[in-house]
């Protein structure tokens, strides 16, 4: 209940004060270079990793990256650099369902 209130307050502040969302909200920041690289900041861990699919845990929901020949070049506590051929990046937003895995 308090978490929900805090979250709403953060949305309101970023919206009204014109602040960049990734600073206040716990959302990932993705930087993609063509199909070759994907740089993910603010992730919360690896759920699944294979050559064709990477699923990353986020604060709210998860991120699925599809493609082929994936290699995790570097992985740091909240930063990840993925290399390979990226076909698709999608959010699986099931926070209503309380979709925190693991």
């Amino acid at each position: 209940m308090f978490d929900r209130f805090k979250q709403n307050a953060k949305y309101w502040v970023t919206g009204k004060m014109n602040l960049p969302e990734d600073v206040l909200l716990d959302v990932p920041r993705l930087t993609m270079i063509g199909q070759l690289h994907l740089h993910v900041e603010n992730h919360r861990g690896v759920l699944h990793f294979s050559k064709e699919l990477v699923r990353l845990k986020l604060t709210y929901g998860e991120l699925a990256i599809k493609g082929h020949d994936f290699v995790i070049k570097t992985i740091l506590p909240n930063e990840l650099l993925l290399e390979g051929t990226i076909d698709e990046v999608s959010y699986l937003n099931d926070k209503e369902a309380g979709g925190i895995h693991e």
């Binding site: 990793f49 294979s50 050559k51 994936f70 290699v71 995790i72 070049k73 570097t74 992985i75």
Partner: peptide, 9 residues
């Protein structure tokens, strides 16, 4: 804080 590099499956 173990740093792994070039992870492939």
């Amino acid at each position: 804080e173990l740093i792994l590099k070039n992870i492939t499956k």
